[in-house]
Amino acid sequence: MTGSPPVAAQVDLRQQPVEDVLERVEQALHVRLDRQALVRRRRSLGGRTDRGTWVRIERRGFEQIGPQGWNGTEAAAVLQGVAMPEWYQGVAWREQGEPVMWRADELELMTSPSVARSALVLDDPGLPDAWWEVLNASLDALAAQRTPRIAAPDTVTITQEQVTQILGESFPGLADTRIERWAPAHADLTWANVMGPEFSVIDWEDWGMAPRGLDAATLWGNALAVPPLADRVQQERRADFESRDGKLMSLFFLSKIVGSLSYEGDPLLAPARKEAKRLVGELQHTPDR
């Protein structure tokens, strides 16, 4: 008999003791981690090493690891023309007695910090034109490649069925949610995962094939509280946003803001509602092709 897969207990690594994990990673990768500068997030850790590299450590339950595995950062090492940290080595292990996997990857240390500490921005970071040029070159290069991997935004594998369900629940006026073009995407292109003023993209664990425009929509949506910045994203990635798939992906992102879990204190809510109304109207008046 087969049943539902076991679900991992929720753990917040910002509160959980992690010294044993750090020691295991150090022994496996033959590095020493700087404890004083350790970055702790809910399900990941990051830190500088004594040889001038960066190590990212993540804990993930079995239910969030699909058949394609969980080596996205390693798999992304073959991508060409994308500004990203070089991958050096990695290690993975199962947490004893729990349906949980740990993974640590040693990467090139980027000289520029993340543009923002969280996914969204509330102030214009004043990025130089060169930053936008490399962003465009990287996203274009990424989209031109092919991979058997399927993107998993928010650790959930993206499918046509999922897109149709989410858009149908949030925007019932949409009659057609078919995706026409799929291409490789980072799948978590937030302002915390892009570096500046020198552009690069980090955290590649969930990249793969996705509907066109997913990355552009994610970056744009997380900039809606800063209209000039959101406008710049739209301008730079105009071809994505003007495509039918790009509009659907914009709504796919907006559904997380204006849907059933929306709250009035969200700085993205008001502009998201305005943009959602515009996009639904445009898609409803787009002739069938």
Rank of each mutant, 00 (worst) to 15 (best):
H186R: 06
H186A: 02
D188E: 15
L189F: 07
T190V: 12
W191V: 13
W191I: 14
P197I: 15
F199K: 14
F199I: 14
S200Q: 07
S200F: 06
S200M: 07
S200P: 04
S200G: 08
V201F: 02
I202C: 03
D203K: 06
G208L: 08
G208K: 08
M209N: 14
M209G: 03
A210Q: 05
P211D: 02
P211M: 02
A216Q: 15
T218G: 05
L219P: 11
L219G: 09
W220I: 01
G221D: 01
G221P: 04
N222T: 11
L224D: 06
V226F: 04
P227F: 04
P228G: 08
L229S: 07
R232V: 13
Q235K: 10
Q235L: 10
E236A: 14
R237C: 08
R238N: 14
F241P: 06
F241A: 03
S243V: 08
S243I: 07
S243P: 13
G246A: 08
K247D: 04
L248H: 07
F252Y: 15
F253C: 03
F253G: 01
L254G: 04
S255G: 08
I257R: 00
I257C: 00
I257E: 00
I257L: 00
I257A: 00
V258C: 03
V258I: 06
S260M: 03
L261I: 00
L261N: 00
S262H: 11
Y263T: 02
E264G: 02
E264F: 05
E264W: 06
D266C: 03
D266Q: 02
